[in-house]
Design a protein around this nucleic acid. Structure first.
Lengths: 324, 324
DNA sequence: CTGAAAGCGCTTACAG
DNA sequence: CTGAAAGCGCTTACAG
């Protein structure tokens, strides 16, 4: 038989659809007898309320859009996993928007999400200038990304992380550690901290940026060229994948690590930590980032007009491996 | 103003809602003039059709449930990314169901997905005995998992992969390579191939299985114990993370790789390949797995009664690194 | 070529 | 304590 509907349950239990709906939503006074009969009918028919019909009425669809560059990246995979966990705990479902490292898709997704009446959006891409976020009259939470004064951002302490990494490299004897990062703009606190520490030690900062959209293979080629040219004896990469590229380069070119080159990464995803625990890296609390973002969004959905409070950055930690 | 509805567009264009709906769906004959006026009204109001209302009518919600153990694992992250890409190309959205490595959630998700009227499900978890898949009257596609005769499964050639890995280890001089895998049941073709090759060479197979639900830290401990006890001079791990644990163990215990121990992994996700290209591994065509799963599901949604055709396994390849 | 009306599967005032 | 009816925002026969 086709999927049973409220009407079928009502007929079977010998009551009105209103009553069934009341039992379902536990609303108003119902006699125990009625309640029992209705529940029996529900079980017998294997009835499940249609969430689509429900969301057409209430203003809640229970859907949250989660926009990321790509979950193929272990950092974002782990982030999305923890976001999903947080959302599920509050009864929300995650609509995954994987931009496939393609900025253009982000705007499309934002449109799509609104057409699908999502209750809110969590975004962690880094495309600059994506219009639509200001227009969107939707609760939004950003992860590590400034989108506008009215949009709260969850992040960890990038400045402290940048300082920890740079100071550690210097302490380990690196004379001129180089910074390799995605983009070197004003909002890059990890780069700012690197410059600050280098300056404080009277060293010349050297920053190389590959750009977010760079395909992985090109990125590797850039990293290898930069390292060969720079003669750096230390590398601070603002993500672990780049740090591992540096490590591989050292291996290939016969350099010893940490003897000739010291290497520090950033992020500390579980996958990298488990697979390559020898990598010294600045660990972000990825699970907490995701959990906090989910919680914050749920709160905003519940009370959209509450003024966004400034989120204190979550703490990072330096995890020592044998690469430094 | 509140979100505009069809009625608002109709009023503004001076036509009936029927006509607006026709323009939207490009259905029936409309005069160019009408079409123009309606489109103008749509633009002026910034109208977007409500996908929820639409799916209440048609039988298509445009939603597809994607069930995975966790996207925090780079293999599944990459798989989900390619599934999402394939679905999006056909106008479907992915509802992410991250089981958080917890078998219990899978059944709940299956329920949830049906309540939300998803048009289909792609599942790639490995929990045995999850009821509900047979009951679910829903197009389903499995990735590397046998669920039942009527459910098509997309996978790569596990048997060939197992053979490639084992033969390679023997060719590189390993005398008694050990197999480390998740579970050692009859459906584990990689393990079967390992046994077969070992037998053909007159060697005693040694299989160790940690179980899917094992937390990462426990898994590492198991792997290290097994390796220390076995005195193995070769390791075939049926996933890369486990192979990297073996590599790290060798490093920690002062063994040379590949001199003392040869190591072969499995999966070859982009993250691992980029981060640790030195790992010899059996590469699965993850992108093709995801694309094929998406395509197959889309086909089944379009024609649910078509007999499921047997999917030929996709080819794998041995990628050589310096660990063998 | 265009519109009035019924209906998708629910919930929610409003009566009784 | 329970039910008949309207309505959520659309689409689709059915008339004209």
């Amino acid at each position: 038989m086709a999927r049973p509907k409220l009407e079928d349950v009502a007929a079977r239990a010998g009551v009105s659809v209103t009553t069934v709906s009341r039992v379902l939503n536990n609303r108003g006074y119902l006699s125990d007898d009625l309640r029992r009969r209705v529940n029996a009918a529900i079980d017998e028919l294997g009835y499940r309320p249609d969430a689509i019909a429900r969301s057409l009425i209430g203003r809640r669809s229970g859907l949250v859009g989660v926009i990321v560059p790509t979950v193929a990246d272990p950092f974002f995979g782990e982030l999305v996993s923890s976001i999903e966990r947080g959302l599920a705990a509050h009864g929300y479902k995650a609509l995954l928007c994987d931009c496939q490292e393609n900025a253009g898709r982000e705007a499309e997704y934002l449109d799509l999400l609104q057409a699908n009446r999502v209750d809110g959006v969590i975004t962690s891409t880094h495309n600059r200038d994506v219009a639509g976020y200001d227009r969107a009259e939707l609760p939004i939470v950003a992860v590590d990304r400034r989108l506008g004064a009215h949009i709260p951002v969850v992040r960890s302490d990038n400045r402290a992380g940048g300082r920890l990494a740079t100071e550690h490299l210097l302490a380990r004897g690196a004379l001129s550690p180089i910074l390799i990062t995605a983009t070197d703009h004003a909002g890059n606190d990890r780069a700012a901290a690197y410059r600050e520490v280098m300056g404080a030690h009277g060293r010349e900062p050297r920053v190389r940026a590959y750009g977010y959209a760079t395909p992985m293979d090109d990125r590797r080629a850039l990293v290898e060229t930069w390292l060969a040219d720079s003669g750096a004896d230390g590398v601070f990469a603002t993500d672990d994948l780049t740090a591992l590229m540096a490590l591989e380069w050292a291996h290939k070119t016969g350099r010893s690590v940490p003897g000739d080159v010291r290497i520090v990464g950033y992020d500390g995803s579980a996958a990298v930590r488990l697979g390559v625990p020898g990598l010294t890296t600045v660990g972000q609390p990825i699970g907490r980032l995701g959990a906090r973002a989910a919680q914050l969004l749920v709160d905003r959905i519940a009370d959209p007009d509450a003024a966004p409070t400034a989120e204190p950055p979550l703490p990072v930690e330096l995890r020592l491996g044998w690469t430094t």
